[in-house]
Amino acid sequence: MRTTTPTTPDTGVPRAAGPVIELHGAAFGYGEHAVVTDVDLTVRRGEIVAVLGPNGAGKSTLMKGILGLNEHLAGTIRLFDEDADVTRDRARVGYVPQRHTLSASILATAEEIVATGRLPRLGWLGRLKATDRQVVARALELVGLGDRAATEVTTLSGGQQRRVLIARALAGQADVLVMDEPTAGVDAASQHVLADVLARLVERGVTMVIVTHELGALERILTRIVVVDAGHVTFDGTPHQYEATRAAVHHDHDAHHHDSELADEEATPVLPRGPVDPSGDGHA
């Protein structure tokens, strides 16, 4: 277990060795209404966790709860061994939202977008200095966009825009990336470039929580899978255990064996049944 990560080389702050994210009996929602309840989840340094589940199951609510973007209604949430409701360093949790946040009404370059990720490190009035610009340039290089710094972001492809948002989180020296549907709307070739970029970050010790309804090209980098369904965590284990459970569940609910079962399973990306994958209609 490492004590520092290469993305945070110049802070010199010793990093706590405890869990990155720790939820106990946590409930999150909007207003008084809890959408996910009773979540126990501990993410340790270096883990690559996929949070899977059908649309509306509560996985986005769980993610936004971790990010402090909705109401924390019950239980405890700790980030880097600190109470999340009082922590002052939220930028260590690097949020990578869906790319549509880049389609703004004012043009901006990739570098300008990534530089906003640096702001939490500058205090109220600080300005970007030469070292900050270096961090921004390095973050763009890390996601393979070093040559596109001056490119206007809306002219980049979907996968490239996603990598700009990853670079923005890296510029804030995030120790854990929380990604919302990183493969949605990204074609297969770009998904592989994205997976390569993430694999490179994994080597550097970045922890990841990837919220998605389809694993796609990211499957090969995962160390753990958490399934959220109907507002609860219904599975938590390794990809291997997940495969086994999925086969068992499939077996239970399908007493009559069909020759097509194996083929079905391969074609179904996340869970054997249900509205897991919006594109799942085509698999039936």
Partner: peptide
């Protein structure tokens, strides 16, 4: 202005 949700998540005022 570019991404209010992100700004909130990383703790900008």
């Amino acid at each position: 202005a570019n991404d209010e949700e992100y700004a909130r998540a990383v703790g900008l005022p």
